[in-house]
Amino acid sequence: MPDKLDFAEFYAAWFRTLTHQLFAHTGDLAEAQDVVQEAFCRAWPRWSTLDDPGAWVRRVAWNLATSRWRRARRLLHLTRNVREEHAPGPGPDAVALRAALATLPERQRQAVVLFYLADVSIAEIAELTGAAEGTVKSWLHRGRATLALRLTDDDVHASPEVRSA
């Protein structure tokens, strides 16, 4: 059985940061907390065998989020209902960021979130996503450009090349 104290410390150290990442990715705080908690539930019985529990839980949480997102998308497609938003009331930049992130393609968004929120290197993102490093760089570049459209008013109004990117 895993060591309780170590697991508790690990949980305390990782829960918030992982939830931040998944919230930035999914835009749904309840969903983010749910998948992170589920990832910890998957880690607990395996605790003694995990070499890098942080990376493992992060990966599982992202996998869960992706799986659920696909299921939710299929459900949305079937029911054509609008998904309820859980807006936590952030500031203007955060609102703009959420809106910008929501427009990014899934893998682009994942790369941006991992890069900015998880401090994951390009090489690690490539390993995590199974993409080439060049592809990850491209995702990051495009992702930043999209963020520019939303976060930098000057760019939005004065840069047609960015708008068309």
Partner: peptide
């Protein structure tokens, strides 16, 4: 961008 991410995490 960093500021926006920081604000996002602080807000939640």
């Amino acid at each position: 961008v960093h500021h926006a991410f920081a604000e996002l995490t602080e807000s939640i």
